[in-house]
Design a protein around this nucleic acid. Structure first.
Lengths: 159, 159
DNA sequence: CGTGAAAATGGGATTAA
DNA sequence: TTAATCCCATTTTCACG
């Protein structure tokens, strides 16, 4: 899973298409990039085996499942000792309402993105994840009023 | 596409599975949730017709495509007049390196998440998107050192 | 990489409950 | 009405050229 894949133009075209709709048939993909279905199959298999494609997933609208509120949070920890850092990290990752978690350099240490039912729900989670942890110095809550762009569409320019 | 879908337990189970891997065959899904393949087919169709499932997509590792650096940015605008706000919004959404864009309440106005080649690349984008816009008062850059969780896995608890 | 055949899957119609 | 069974068109996938 290390170094091998120098993606060629076909790979990039396929990735662009498949990022947008991974249900296109391999024949259809082949037609669009001028390749046989078999070739498309082989490339797609290689791309997912190599981990270039992390996974094929259905993207669900969170509000359809009862989580209409997206909240961005900056978290600063008290103590950056590795084991303590690891403990908070794990508690964030375990929480199903933490949709994304980034470890960042600078004054704050984490950026989290929550999908929650409502403010009460979020408040309960802050208690659980921040106050009870005893290693969160401060956190800053940014309530979103619009998820303007959420796709993970990665640009596929030439190398 | 409005109100109809009271998701039952089967729907939620299917969504949980399909969020993680939308290439599971309908037979396989049926086996896991104790439903026939045909029933799975109908439910999945309804869920995507209703917009509960936004789309089926392949998630690509950005660094495989040459964008190893993830950067979170808080942006505060100068003037919140609706047309000016709309102009900056559009410029953010048009930028392919802006992977996510949230409109937030409070002191700052937007949170952006970039996928870029390196710091030079990011610097060039800040010039283009922030300095040249004349409506960005200030922005705060948070350089990430780890994308610890990026999935949009929506929890599927009972209603 | 492309071709073609074999295997698997998708998705509709029909029947049963 | 909803699910299970069957059936055929489509798709995937493999061996070979």
């Amino acid at each position: 899973m290390a170094t091998t894949p120098p993606l060629d133009s076909y790979d990039r075209q396929l990735l662009a298409l498949v990022q947008d709709d991974c249900r296109l048939s391999q024949a259809e993909l082949g037609a669009r990039v001028h390749l046989s279905a078999a070739a498309v199959n082989r490339r797609l298999k290689r791309l997912s085996d190599d981990g270039v494609i992390e996974r094929f997933s259905a993207q669900v609208r969170p509000d359809a499942l009862g989580y209409p509120l997206t909240i961005v949070v900056e978290v600063q920890v008290e103590n950056e000792r590795i084991d303590l850092l690891d403990a908070v990290t794990q508690s964030f990752l375990r929480c199903p309402f933490v949709q994304q978690c980034y470890y960042v350099a600078g004054e704050c240490d984490f950026v989290l993105i929550f999908a929650v039912r409502d403010m009460d729900h979020y408040t309960a989670l802050t208690r659980e994840l921040f106050y009870d942890s005893h290693n969160v110095k401060r956190f800053k809550t940014l309530v979103t009023m619009g998820r303007l762009k959420t796709g993970m569409q990665v640009p596929v320019a030439e190398s």
